[in-house]
């Protein structure tokens, strides 16, 4: 076992893990953050996407040890059930999902996209979400949701 200090959603956790533990497993099993979804486990589907220092990365494709000293954000740190983040609100309002399995990852990638390029076109949105597979095929509504989220964030003047 090896010691690891992990900063997730603003909280610091002191953990003891196996050196080869995968970040996604540590977030889910040790910290109970089940919004980190693992589907393919091989970097293809994007369900396990989290933000590391603000950038989307795949939690299933890295060692937990690689994340030491970084700021991690999972969907649990974005909004709460009572107080959804504007991007989450937009996905609910536009039905940007069906089963919802891929949604946490897509919302986190959307956060980064809208910080970098709030006026993204539908094709830019599609390209920036190319690392996410939605097996329900909700893509058209996902793109609408992202556009609505952009509008909400603009109206809020980025208050959140």
């Amino acid at each position: 076992m090896i010691k690891l200090k992990l900063k997730v959603n603003g909280n610091i956790h002191e953990l003891e893990i196996e050196p080869h533990a995968i970040l996604a497993d540590v977030l889910k099993k040790e910290l109970g953050l089940i919004g980190v979804r693992v589907s393919c486990g091989e970097g293809e589907c994007g369900a396990c996407t989290i933000l590391m220092d603000g950038k989307p990365v795949l939690a299933c494709m890295m060692l937990a040890m690689q994340a030491e000293g970084k700021e991690l954000l999972t969907i649990e740190g974005l909004g709460t059930y009572e107080n959804l983040h504007p991007i989450q609100e937009a996905f609910v309002e536009e039905h940007g999902f069906q089963c919802g399995f891929c949604t946490p990852g897509i919302i986190l990638s959307t956060k980064k996209l809208l910080e970098t390029k709030p006026d993204s076109t539908p094709s830019e949105i599609a390209m920036s979400l190319s690392g996410h597979i939605c097996r329900c095929g909700a893509y058209p509504k996902i793109i609408k949701s992202v556009q609505k989220a952009a509008k909400k964030l603009e109206d809020n003047h980025g208050k959140k």
Binding site: L58, M61, S130
Partner: peptide
């Protein structure tokens, strides 16, 4: 190369 998430790693 790969996806945006992989390119970040």
């Amino acid at each position: 190369l790969a996806t945006p998430q992989i390119r970040n790693t």
